[in-house]
Structures are given as structure tokens and as C-alpha cells.
């Protein structure tokens, strides 16, 4: 069995597919929509609408980029406030037209910088948490890579949470944790164990409902299973009344640490 830190490294690997890959695999006729209508358009987040087995859906995905130039431009998938605000704008558009929302999470977290703070990184995330709790359409969140703290949670308030086997989801990076606790970032592997950040840990805690196996499977197979699981979940959630859906969403988070 892989150690926690091996999974962290797998989740971060440059070879691991990012958000755009799964959009291509799962969504037909995807139309990317741009901009937060406030300040800018953040390429760390790809948002848009398309078809999933004949059903219209909204997809919001962190994208780390492929070439080095592309990765720099996309801040390695770390969203700025504009990214979270674009995501929220598209979610509200989705709510208006009764489309379900699929969020794909995979980057080290919210972008860390002077401009991000000036434009309210904390406020942007807080607003998403607040608004997503009340969105009247189903939300499915999938951690496909690294789920980095509050920056991940800003796309993670949902009705069903799914993790790919080798993805991780943590309150702090193992390096950050190790340097705070032991003043030594090289103790990240120990911190990764202590944080219990693997898909299996989170499933055990009841924070995520499903884990999709990756071992001995191709990316194509993983993508196909993910698509089927999302469709099943959407069918289930769409059958619920809006009130029941929102009550269950509240309860899903309300019960953690209660």
C-alpha cells in the first residue's frame, strides 16, 4: 500500500491529468465561459457548460496547465479571487437555469500573493462557501489531484464528494505542517501521515462519499468510471426536492465534528 506521502507526490505529479482532461473525457460540446464580471478572468479555473449523456451541466475545474508557459499563466491551477468569483458567477447561472454543477479540484490551493490579498482572497472563498450552501441545484465535487485547504473547499461545498484514489485533501500542506510543528519541511512525509489526508482517510471520516480506484487502471478507465458515478449521483440528487437537497447538504457538513 502506498504511504500518505507517496500519494501526495502522485497527486502533485506533472503527469497527472488536470481539470481540462476530465472535461474532455466526460463532457460533450463543452463551451468555456470566461471572466468574473468584476475584475478579470483567471485561467487557473476553467468554467463552462456542456452535455453529459444528453444532460446539460456546468463544470468548474482547476487547471494546472501543460507546457511550462501555460503552467505559469495558470498559476499551476492555484485560483486567484477572480477565479473563485468566476466560479460563483457560473454556479449562479447554473442555478438560474436548473443545471447541476460539477466541480473538479486539483491544485496546491488558493494563489498566494500580494494582489490576491488586495482583491480579497479570503472574502472570495468565504462568499463561495456561503453561497454554495444555498445553491438550489445539485453540486458534485471531485478531488482529482491535490486538494489544498480553503482554496479547495471553495469548490468543495457539495451534495456528494468524490476523491480519486491517489488524490489528497488537507487543511495544510505536509511541508507547511512540518515546518510549523517541527521547524523542518523535510519531515513532510511524517506530517502527511499525521494529517490523514488520503482518499481512504477522508472516506473513513465521512468527509467524502466515494473513492475511485486508480491502481492498475488507465486514465481513460478512471475517467469513464468517474463519469458514470457522477451521472448516478446526479440522477439521485435531481430526484430530491430542492428543500430536501439543501437540508441534506447542510447536514452533510453539520455532522462533521458534531
Amino acid at each position: 500500500m502506498a504511504t500518505a506521502y507517496e500519494r501526495v507526490q502522485a497527486a502533485r505529479s506533472g503527469k497527472r491529468p488536470s481539470g481540462g482532461y476530465y472535461i474532455d473525457r466526460m463532457v460533450d460540446g463543452f463551451v468555456e465561459l470566461h471572466g468574473d464580471r468584476r475584475y478579470g478572468d483567471d485561467p487557473a479555473i476553467i468554467g463552462g457548460i456542456g452535455w453529459m449523456n444528453g444532460q446539460a451541466v456546468t463544470v468548474i475545474a482547476m487547471e494546472r496547465g501543460d507546457s511550462i508557459e501555460d503552467r505559469m499563466r495558470r498559476h499551476f491551477g492555484c485560483p486567484s479571487p477572480e477565479g473563485y468569483r468566476k466560479a460563483l458567477r457560473l454556479m449562479k447561472l447554473s442555478e438560474k437555469f436548473g443545471r447541476p454543477i460539477i466541480c473538479l479540484i486539483g491544485s496546491s490551493g488558493a494563489y498566494c500573493g500580494i494582489q490576491a490579498e488586495q482583491r480579497g482572497q479570503g472574502e472570495a472563498i468565504a462568499e463561495n462557501l456561503f453561497e454554495m450552501m444555498g445553491l438550489r441545484v445539485p453540486i458534485i465535487s471531485v478531488v482529482i489531484g491535490e486538494g489544498g485547504s480553503g482554496g479547495a473547499l471553495a469548490l468543495g461545498v457539495c451534495d456528494t464528494a468524490i476523491m480519486l484514489e491517489n488524490s489528497v485533501y488537507s487543511v495544510i500542506s505536509p511541508e507547511g505542517c512540518a515546518s510549523i510543528l517541527w521547524k523542518d519541511a523535510s519531515k513532510a512525509p511524517e506530517a502527511a501521515e499525521a494529517l490523514h489526508l488520503t482518499s481512504y482517510d477522508l472516506h473513513k471520516f465521512g468527509v467524502v462519499e466515494h473513492v475511485i480506484k486508480e491502481q492498475n487502471r488507465t486514465e481513460k478507465e478512471i475517467g469513464a468510471e468517474l463519469k458514470q458515478l457522477i451521472l448516478d449521483e446526479l440522477a439521485q440528487k435531481s430526484a430530491m426536492s430542492v428543500d430536501a437537497l439543501l437540508a441534506a447538504r447542510y447536514q452533510k457538513f453539520r455532522s462533521i465534528g458534531a
Binding site: 494529517l195 482517510d201 477522508l202 471520516f205 462533521i256 465534528g257
Partner: peptide, 11 residues
């Protein structure tokens, strides 16, 4: 308290 702490933000 790991991920359980993070989830308090949503709660």
C-alpha cells in the same frame, strides 16, 4: 485536527 478542521469552515 486535519481535514475535520477545514470542514468546520463549511459547517
Amino acid at each position: 485536527e486535519g481535514i475535520l478542521s477545514l470542514m468546520q469552515m463549511a459547517k
